[in-house]
Computed example of a mutant assay.
Amino acid sequence: MPQRRTVTSRSQEPRQRFAEELKALREGSGLTLRELGERLGWDHSLLGKMENGQTLGGPEVVGALDQHYGTPGFLVTLWELALADPAQFKEQYRRYMALEAEAMSLWHFAVSVLPGMLQTDAYAREVLAAGGIGGQELDRQVEARVGRRAWLVGKEAPAFRCILSEAVLRTPLRNAGAWREQVAHLVAMAERPNITLQVLPLEAGLHALVSTDVMFLKEFSGRTTAYTETAYHGELVQEYGEVERLQRAYDSMRDLALSPAESLKFIGRMLEEAPCDPST
């Protein structure tokens, strides 16, 4: 079971919180900046600037720090929050992501787009570009989004369940090769012991979450938090009665979904049917 992280009085401002966590983890390990740099193969001056908040570093060094400290995905998520322009991340979603970084288990329902943690680089790029993001900001947000994948494959990765509407799998990328890569990635992720994927077939008909993405997380305290999202609105849900209502809707929808084994076969057939990239 992942180690429970103690709630602290550290800053809630993402960039400062990221720097504080880096420094606290290093000091807790008893290493100097120079010793840490030698172990990781990174310049100690860069690590010092990251701890001072002068720079955020890149996904490679943050991933290396996550692995070194045994905190898979935790630092990457804080880095993503710090990297993001506050205007582009609604406050409620930022709060959800902060909780997600310390959750013991997660379960999602995707209406039309794959969850970020299951996206390949190419899929994330096309989804973000479709939302009007471009240039260097697009590159930064792609790096941030795909960096979170490491959280699902680490030694202490949380349990993760995702129900995908069949519509998600029927909406390919424009690039045939990139789409095949994405579907193959789903197959590989579905075979991991901590990940459960299910497909909700279109023939299941209408259900309570037909137009709403929903994400749940369970904290080590036992509390469950939800985040719902439509094309134009997102909401953090923490009130017990509302979370219970959403969870009942999720459970009834899960009863309509294919079993994990059937879902894996379904996704496998999608991979077989996916058009080949004519350039290969």
Results as ranks from 00 to 15, higher is better:
4 R>E: 15
4 R>G: 13
7 V>G: 13
18 F>T: 14
21 E>P: 05
33 L>P: 01
35 E>A: 15
38 E>N: 06
40 L>H: 01
47 L>N: 06
49 K>C: 00
53 G>I: 07
59 P>A: 09
63 G>N: 04
63 G>T: 07
68 H>Y: 12
77 T>I: 10
84 A>S: 14
87 A>Y: 12
90 K>D: 15
94 R>W: 03
96 Y>K: 02
97 M>G: 00
106 L>C: 07
107 W>G: 00
115 P>F: 03
120 T>N: 01
120 T>H: 01
127 V>C: 03
133 I>M: 04
136 Q>V: 08
136 Q>Y: 07
137 E>Y: 04
137 E>G: 04
137 E>A: 08
140 R>S: 12
144 A>Y: 14
149 R>V: 07
149 R>Y: 13
158 P>Q: 00
158 P>L: 02
161 R>P: 04
163 I>Y: 09
165 S>D: 10
169 L>W: 09
175 N>W: 13
178 A>P: 00
181 E>Q: 14
185 H>R: 08
186 L>D: 06
187 V>L: 13
188 A>P: 03
191 E>R: 15
198 Q>Y: 00
200 L>T: 03
210 V>G: 05
222 G>M: 07
240 Y>P: 12
240 Y>R: 14
241 G>P: 09
242 E>T: 09
243 V>K: 06
245 R>P: 01
246 L>F: 12
249 A>N: 13
252 S>D: 09
269 R>N: 10
273 E>G: 00
279 S>L: 08
279 S>Y: 10
